[in-house]
Design a binder for these strands. Structure first.
Length: 800
RNA sequence: GCGGGUAUGGCGGAAUUGGUAGACGCGCUAGAUUCAGGUUCUAGUGAGGAUUCCUUCAUGAAGGUUCAAGUCCUUUUACCCGCACCA
């Protein structure tokens, strides 16, 4: 048979669709498999080969599960709210609804061309009313639970996109959307209290099967640290300055304190401070710096001493000065630190610059040259002197602090609350009403969805206000509580809202009574296997785990963690080895590959490129190699000869079925394909195979190249679809050849190879090895010191 | 700075976890088929030396453990990714 991909691919896609063979079944008595891939953002550029690789992995697993008799849920949808669409809409003066629909249509067409076995009856679109109604519903539940709050704080603001960004969206001081520099701006924003879930998100990692580096990144992002809060009295007042430290053992080494420039204590004691002008000048200077600049000046510390205010070290009663400096952040801990220059590099740099005392309290370094951060014996520390370990010293100091009532154990997290609003049009309206008498009131559940009003002009306001503020019919409303005149919140939710629970909607996507029925959730959840990009592990993954754990706490979902297993695919680089980007002109369009080589080749190639989790450059000639492989598979029909087993191929078939079956589970798709290529080479060498053998081959290749396999299955007269045929099994005993090639070494050097029966015993094997001419040549006249026999592998004779 | 990772032919990458390094694919060489080939088939292909049956050296670098090391240990170099003044 010729591999006429252009003719067969569309044909089988239509047949699959007509028969609905990839629809998840409503039969909840069968064993289930829920495979999830990150739904795409439908951008105008269309799909990227990276999408294909990202979906192909679980595509193969899902197809294998179906053939193994599982009821499989393998859904797809579109995460369609967000700035790129809106920016494009503004630029081209087209409504984002139209842009979104057009992009979704394009993605759908492209995905279908590749023949993915998605259940197309369960697609979700986060911008549809029937979907965002439930996004708003969950938000309202969080509002009721006290997890939503509004605060005026310094926020990350992108002057180009004119939006407030979360910490997760402004990593490295750059806007995640347009890569402009982020500035710090004081703004009234909505927050989700994700920090309340910090411990749950951290400890929940113990019960899931994520890639180790995915877990680690989440752990680091949450950044739990254990330490102590300590109150340092402010001299001549009843007040104190509260600090957080992980090193309370070094308290006798404290020689000054530093507070963030924005710390409220400055305003509080403005009348006592004698150098307010200098402090204000410094504050103004800091505000001008971008986040990036603030992190650049790591070595050169700046700051100003507060004159007229003095603190007392509660450990030894000594008076110490207080400084303001931007190396202390208001957003972490209490915005104030105790400085121990002898044992902290930053404090050391600062003390050197300002000529402050440096007192060694831990032996082991040379504090006249640099800060010593290692462990050692305590000195100059009163009751801690002589203690040799950090752990012990901390415990003793904590006891002292607690006993005196001046401090206590405490925990801090790097993770901050989630800034949850955007002053933009293309997002879910936040269902809150501002009433002058009742304050913030949630939009009643029965009024959801709170529809996004249709607008002609949806550009953001210059002052950073949402475009929705211009729609009077939207803004003006009555308070659901008191019936008085009130105004609606006009901000929308960030792009990450819709994707925080989409995996739940897939379980029951058409339900308009609840976001998903209990029955469907009980059966399908948790997601058995979730695959996606590494770039989402500290945002989407954390956010969605947070939402899901919240829903679990209020009894809406049956399990605490949403994803049982998480893996990640590696990037596909351009042919030049660089990251694919439009500006570099090295982007490969999957449509072109399908046109020229077919969908099966595209699928096989993206999985054959290299290790699934690693980045690998695109190579057109390697694509041709995969084409050649499938052409050779198609041509097997000319070699079919009879039924049953070809003796020369029997072991090779059992081996390959085993290898492919196991490799799919480990996502080692490249070696699975290599094994099938090897088998093809063996078959070509033998020159013939049976119908039964072709049937086995077709079924193990089917998850990778389903169109060709369906065609071959039909040629064989197979029943139904290859895609639903039973996954082949192997006989372990038949995966080993009757004779094994042993490597024979003399003193660890390879001298010969001999074929021996597979269950030969040690003595006969060694005797046989010694008979080899090559072996004799190296052993003659010498005494044998040691004989090593590894069954099935190697014989090593050590001589002297 | 902290944390994690990677390093194997001309290229992408294998190696059953300590047991014949280079599977599979690309590329290249030769031969055959074809009117032609960006076709197909067959053979060869880590490097150096002898070319008939050989032999030495090779997994970023340098040591070590072992009968045996790409794999384990120590030191070191380069690159990649994540976080970044986190107190």
């Amino acid at each position: 048979m010729k591999h006429d991909f252009a003719a067969i691919e569309k044909k089988w896609q239509d047949k699959w669709e007509e028969a609905g063979i990839f629809h998840a079944s409503g039969d909840h008595t069968k064993k289930k498999f829920y495979g999830l891939v990150e739904f795409p953002y439908p951008s105008g550029a269309g799909m990227h080969v990276g999408h294909i690789k990202a979906y192909s992995g679980l595509e193969v697993v899902s197809r294998k599960r179906r053939m193994q008799g599982y009821n499989v849920l393998f859904p797809i949808g579109f995460d369609a709210y967000g700035l790129p669409t809106e920016n494009y809409a503004i630029k081209t003066n087209t409504h984002p609804r139209i842009v979104t629909d057009r992009n979704i249509a394009k993605f759908t067409q492209q995905l279908k061309r590749v023949g993915f076995s998605f259940d197309w009856t369960r697609t979700v679109d986060t911008t549809e009313e029937g979907y965002y109604k439930w996004t708003q519903w969950i938000f309202r539940k969080m509002f009721d639970a006290g997890l939503v709050f509004r605060a005026t704080t310094l926020v990350n603001y992108c002057p180009s996109c004119k939006v407030v960004l979360s910490n997760e969206d402004s990593q490295g001081g750059k806007c995640d959307i347009c890569h402009s520099d982020i500035v710090q701006k004081s703004k009234d924003v909505w927050y989700l209290r994700i920090t309340e879930y910090a411990d749950k998100l951290l400890f929940g990692l113990d019960e899931v099967d994520y890639l180790p580096n995915v877990k680690l990144q989440q752990e680091n992002w949450i950044g739990r640290s254990e330490g102590a809060f300590v109150n340092f009295p402010i001299a001549d007042t009843d007040d104190s300055l509260r600090i957080y430290t992980t090193r309370c053992d070094t308290m006798f080494g404290v020689t000054f304190m530093v507070i963030a420039p924005e710390h409220p204590i400055i305003e509080k004691y403005a009348d006592r401070i004698t150098n307010m002008e200098a402090l204000d000048a410094y504050k103004a200077e800091c505000a001008k710096k971008t986040e990036f600049e603030r992190t650049q000046l790591v070595k050169d510390k700046t700051g100003v001493k507060i004159e007229g205010l003095c603190a007392v070290n509660p450990a030894n009663g000594k008076e110490i000065p207080i400084f303001i400096s931007d190396y202390v952040m208001m957003g972490y801990g209490t915005g104030a630190i105790m400085a121990v220059p002898a044992h902290d590099e930053r404090d050391y740099d600062f003390a050197k610059k300002f000529g402050i005392d440096i007192i060694e309290v831990i032996k082991g370094g040379d504090v006249s040259r640099e800060a010593y951060t290692g462990d050692g014996e305590m000195v100059n520390s009163d009751f801690l002197d002589g203690i040799a370990t950090k752990k012990e010293a901390i415990a003793k100091m904590l006891e002292f602090l607690t006993g005196k009532g001046i401090g206590e154990k405490g925990v801090q997290y790097k993770m901050k609350d989630w800034a949850f609003n955007r002053q933009r049009y293309w997002g879910e309206p936040i269902p809150i009403i501002h009433c002058p008498t009742c304050g913030m009131v949630g939009v009643p559940y029965e009024e959801l969805p709170l529809r996004l009003p249709d607008m002609e002009q949806f550009e953001p306001g210059e002052g950073g206000e949402s475009p929705l503020a211009k729609v009077e019919s939207f803004v003006n409303c009555t308070c659901p509580k008191c019936g008085g005149k009130a105004k609606r919140e006009t901000d929308t939710m960030p792009q990450w809202a819709g994707s925080s629970w989409y995996f739940l909607r897939y379980c029951d996507p058409h339900n308009d009574e609840v976001f998903a029925s209990k029955e469907a959730l009980n059966y399908w959840m948790p997601v058995d296997w979730y695959n996606g990009g590494m770039e989402h592990v500290t945002r989407h993954m954390i956010y969605s785990r947070f939402w899901h754990r919240f829903l679990y706490d209020i009894g809406e979902v049956p399990c605490d963690e949403p994803y049982a297993k998480r893996t990640a695919q590696g990037l596909i680089l351009g042919p030049d080895g660089e990251k694919m980007s439009k500006s570099k002109g090295n982007v490969v369009d999957p449509n072109d590959v399908v046109d020229e080589y077919g969908a099966d080749v595209l699928r096989v190639y993206t999985l054959f490129m290299g290790e699934y989790g690693s980045a690998a450059p695109w190579s057109e000639s390697s694509v041709r190699g995969c084409k050649r492989f499938l052409d050779r598979v198609a041509a097997l029909t000319d070699m079919v000869n009879g039924e049953g087993v070809t003796p020369k191929l029997e072991t090779a078939f059992h081996k390959t079925v085993k290898k492919v079956s196991c490799d799919i589970e480990d996502m080692k798709f490249n070696t699975a394909i290599a094994a099938m290529m090897s088998l093809i080479n063996d078959i070509y060498e033998v020159g013939s195979l049976t119908k039964d053998e072709l049937g086995i081959f077709v079924r193990i290749l089917c998850p990778f190249a389903p169109h060709l396999c369906e065609e071959l299955w039909a040629w064989l007269g197979g029943e139904g679809f290859a895609s639903l045929a039973e996954w082949p099994t192997w006989d372990e005993a038949k995966t080993v050849d009757a004779t094994v090639t042993y490597a024979v070494q003399v003193c660890g050097k390879l001298r010969a190879t001999i074929d021996l029966p597979k269950d030969i015993d040690k003595d006969s094997a060694i005797a046989a090895a010694k008979e080899e001419a090559k072996v004799k040549q190296f052993t003659e006249g010498k005494t044998v010191v040691k004989e090593i026999f590894v069954p099935g592998k190697i014989i090593n004779i050590v001589v002297k």
